[in-house]
Design a protein around this nucleic acid. Structure first.
Length: 289
DNA sequence: AATTCGGGGTT
DNA sequence: AACCCAGAATT
């Protein structure tokens, strides 16, 4: 099955720029930050702009965090831009401007968790580790465990993936990438294209006749329209397009504009941005950090 | 273990 | 309108 995965990946993988062997570990790390909960098509242009402007961690580190937030644009979860800037400072300070290849050193960086640490170690440095993202978890759930969908993330996911990896580093990296790619383009959440799947013959879920046995999923995400998150987003959009600072009143109005009328929502959104360090208030005006 | 955090594309 | 997305930090 892993051999089929590797062959399929070599033949059918999308030609994504961060997969180019010439891509630096820093640029790979940037791609992984941006790809957290964000689709490839939306990341492509932002990634290109980012790595051109900041080709090294130190280039970003000496710039203002707010500039990172600005270039991040509408990728969502703007805290990631702040965390990526923070990670750049940490890499410049603690690692001599070189992205570490060690899992624990990567995990110690701001904004890097279990997935991103292993993804960087494997895809940027060719280390041998299991890499498990949401795509991989779905592929494992179906092909190995015969389930329609993955359950909650668990430490066992890493063991499942590790069990599939060949001994050699290059092969292990290829299987990691192939499992992710398969989940992204073939073994999709809604309508899997089993007719195009290279491992359909081994798939336990398919073999069992596609039982409707999906485990309990995470609680439904609250609606975005009218949410505090949307109000935060409106303030962030205003700050991004404002050259310098804006009056606090303007920021609160932006939060309320199009809102659901909750009189406390603008202040709640504003304060949470301050708490996150995405908004700095000084002398009655608000600006990016 | 449960919440919070964006915003856009797909069904 | 609900679902889904190369997750991580916080509580």
């Amino acid at each position: 099955m892993t051999r089929a995965l590797i062959e399929w990946y070599a033949r059918a993988a999308r030609d994504l720029p961060w997969r180019d062997p010439e891509t630096t570990p820093w640029a790979v790390l940037v791609s992984e930050f941006m790809l957290q909960q964000t689709q490839v098509d939306r990341v492509l242009p932002r990634w290109a702009a980012w790595v051109e402007r900041w080709p090294t961690p130190s280039a970003l580190a000496i710039d203002e965090p707010g500039e990172a937030v600005r270039v991040w644009d509408r990728l969502g979860y703007p805290r990631r831009a702040l965390w990526l800037h923070r990670a750049a400072v940490e890499i410049a300070d603690r690692h001599g401007d070189r992205v570490p290849a060690d899992i624990d050193e990567l995990l110690a960086l701001t904004g890097i968790g279990p997935y991103t640490a292993r993804a960087v170690a494997v895809f940027a440095f060719g280390e041998r580790h299991p890499v498990v993202d949401t795509n991989t978890r779905r592929v494992l759930a179906r092909a190995v465990h015969g389930r329609a969908a993955a359950g909650m993330p668990a430490a066992a996911d890493l063991d499942d993936m590790a069990a599939l990896l060949p001994e050699d580093r290059a092969g292990a990296a290829a299987v990691n990438a192939a499992a992710m790619e398969l989940g992204a383009v073939v073994c999709t959440a809604r309508a899997p294209r089993c007719g195009e799947c290279p491992i359909a013959r081994w798939c336990e879920w398919r073999g069992a006749g596609y039982p409707d046995n999906a485990p309990a999923k995470r609680p439904r995400q609250a609606r975005f329209a009218g949410s505090d998150r949307q109000a935060r987003g409106r303030i962030m959009a205003l700050l991004r397009r404002s050259e310098g600072a804006v009056a606090v009143e303007r920021a609160l109005e932006a939060a309320a504009d199009g809102g659901v009328g909750d009189p406390e929502q603008p202040r709640r959104a504003y304060d949470s941005l301050v708490a996150d360090g995405l908004l700095v208030e000084r002398e009655g005006s608000a600006r990016l950090p």
